[in-house]
Design a binder for these strands. Structure first.
Length: 224
DNA sequence: GCGACAG
DNA sequence: ATCTTGTCGC
């Protein structure tokens, strides 16, 4: 095995790397006093030729913006379901390197452990930053769940089931806004599901996405 | 073989 | 993800 931080890998190598790295993901809370929360997202320019990573750091409490950073670089690989982190994390790390204030918690656009090999983009990024991360996705990658109540703040767990019928909890389907499709919240790294859901709810504004992710989304898509 | 499939 | 006009609702 070469190095654990090699991003130029073939799909087969990426899968092997994920299986190895997933064992290092911490699923219990290991969070300092939260004073700064970051949101990350990746956008694309030039018809996908350029990858644009955006990070926004908000103060807690209050959610006022403290800092923002953008990093652009040539896109390194196509989107392949299950291998998203190899396409987005390298650029995200460069954007984080430009920050002068280090966050205490990070929210990522995508899945955390709610991934076939339990290493979604939020977990992978958290491992490399050695920071607590939460995955907030707009769609499901894997797992199943019951219907979610319509009230804002309501949530239901979602899980994977093995051949013996044993369930493994992956995350929570959260109704972040009434009458809108729910979001998929899953622990990334150094955080448990309950704490993850608590923080996402705390960061909710009037929209579907929590503020950190919503603002990073706008910055990555060069709208804000 | 037939779907499903984060961004 | 990205390309796009109008439209429904608070």
């Amino acid at each position: 095995m070469e190095s654990l931080h090699d991003w130029d890998v073939t799909p087969a190598q990426a899968v092997a790397l994920q299986q190895c790295l997933a064992a290092s993901v911490e699923r219990d809370d290991r969070i300092a006093d939260v004073q700064r929360i970051a949101g990350v997202d990746i956008g694309f320019e030039d018809d996908g030729e350029t990858t644009r990573a955006a990070v926004v750091v908000l103060k807690w409490p209050g959610l006022g913006e403290l800092e923002r950073a953008v990093h652009r670089e040539p896109t390194r690989m196509p989107y392949i379901p299950g291998l998203l982190s190899f396409r987005e994390v390298p650029a995200a790390l460069q954007a984080f390197a430009r920050l002068t204030h280090s966050p205490d918690l990070v929210m990522v656009d995508g899945q955390g452990i709610a991934h076939p090999r339990r290493l979604g983009v939020a977990s992978h990024l958290g491992l490399w930053l050695d920071l607590p991360t939460i995955g907030v996705a707009k769609k499901r990658l894997c797992g199943r769940h019951d219907s979610v109540p319509e009230a804002r703040g309501a949530w239901t767990p979602f899980w994977d089931q093995d051949a013996q019928g044993q369930r493994e909890e992956l995350g929570a389907v959260l109704r972040s806004r009434q009458g809108v499709k729910p979001v998929y919240v899953s622990p990334g790294h150094r955080i448990g599901l309950d704490t993850a859901v608590t923080w996402v709810v705390r960061c909710l504004g009037r929209t579907k996405l929590p503020e950190p992710t919503r603002l990073a989304d706008r910055l990555a898509s060069r709208r804000g």
